[in-house]
Design a protein around this nucleic acid. Structure first.
Lengths: 228, 228
DNA sequence: CGGCAGTAGTTGCATATACAAGTTTATACA
DNA sequence: TGTATAAACTTGTATATGCAACTACTGCCG
């Protein structure tokens, strides 16, 4: 109850980032519950990174930046939904191309062979967050082009097409070209965070993707316990 | 107290993965604290993924988190030497600072307390490759400022100061400011790949570092087999 | 004007109590 | 033997209370 109240206030924008929220005793009067109940709820939200609490000073809305975990292979849909936001996809390209030498090497297929190519734009609450530029090995997923990617992500389809065996990630910071800047709604001079991801399945390279993110409002994050 | 008891039991292997641990009331008798205290502690550990709780059934040790070799803690010296190149370090700053609110939050120490600060420039074959801007908790490593960082990296010193328990990584692409651009020998408009790394040891945040790399000639890469 | 002490207000933490909700085990009965 | 019921046990949640630790502010005094 306290939790929902706080989250909805933040969601609605009434309590902005960095703003101080009512004290525990004020929330007690407001919601008619005991202080411990309020305390536990705020404590949990603090542990989750939604709030920041400072003893003696007050409770504040934590600054939020879109984050993606790179340790797990979650698809962007789940990432966004997990943050309580709305995910939507726009299909920009869905085609067959014949690969040049570089692409052939990248996918480990013969040069000139046909491969599938898709370009999607993912939005978080209508704000563009990722361009997903993907090449897929047709031998791995022959029906890749027939899917409705406004409903499922390519990730989901590919995971269903075969067991994931190996993943390769390369992360880079690159300047934004004009097309990218326009699509991602970025300011001039802002950099792009580029995540290249190749996946192996059934002994072949199933897919190679370039995931482009606006550097100013996106970061990759991961936290792990070290082996004991 | 309850927390440490549980963690040490798991650490020691007395409570194995998936095993059921004593009930709340049993821990009350065992440790001589109230049930609510036990409950809160177990609740937190459950939120952190260390335990799994099922109402009516009991509390169990959670299966360990999947470990990734991606972004393992190799220090930059080994990275460069592994490529057959020469590594050199220049010490730009080595000082004590009093932390403001943001830094205090980052390190989880009281605002205004003294922390150690170092800024190093790492070169690969005399070409700048990384600015290492690091804050260290003096409680964790009191003799941090007395080391010779042209001979060993801070990473090596910190690893020797205590067992690494947890690591947090955040990766961002950011524009380069003038100082950074000059130090890293970058062209105007080139982005910076920023890796923020926080490490936990002996129950506290030992260190928080900002590692800045020239985006055009640096990338983070990792490849991992997926667990089945 | 600057520094100091006091004070009100805030979060942090532990306790004691009560009941709800879910699971497992034991028992009674057909 | 199989099923239904009951009891015992476990975690989940909410409340009321007390005090410690810390912060920010006010006002006093030199």
């Amino acid at each position: 109850m306290v939790r929902n109240h706080v989250l909805s206030k933040i969601e609605a924008g009434e309590w902005a980032e960095g703003a101080r929220i009512p004290s525990e005793t004020q929330l007690v009067d407001l919601l008619g519950v005991s202080r411990m109940t309020v305390h536990i709820a705020l404590r949990d939200l603090s542990a989750e990174g939604v709030l920041v609490r400072r003893q003696g000073a007050g409770t504040f809305v934590a600054p939020r930046r879109s984050q993606s975990t790179f340790l797990e292979l979650r698809n962007i849909h789940d990432e966004i939904e997990a943050r309580g936001n709305r995910h939507s996809t726009e299909v920009l390209k869905l085609e067959t191309v014949f690969c040049d030498l570089a692409l052939a090497t990248e996918l480990n297929v013969p040069p000139g062979s046909a491969v599938f190519h898709s370009v999607l734009l993912h939005r978080e609450n209508d704000r563009p967050l990722q361009i997903e530029d993907r090449f897929v090995n047709p031998r791995f997923s022959p029906d890749y082009l027939e899917q409705d990617y406004t409903r499922i992500t390519p990730n989901v389809h590919l995971m269903a097409a075969g067991p994931l065996e190996e993943v390769e990630h390369v992360i880079q910071a690159v300047p934004a070209d004009d097309t990218t800047r326009a699509l991602l709604d970025m300011a001039t001079g802002d950099p792009v965070l580029l995540l290249r991801r190749r996946t192996w399945s059934r002994g072949m390279i199933a897919s190679s993707a370039r995931l482009l993110h606006p550097g100013t409002r996106f970061s990759l994050a991961g936290r792990m316990r070290v082996a004991r």
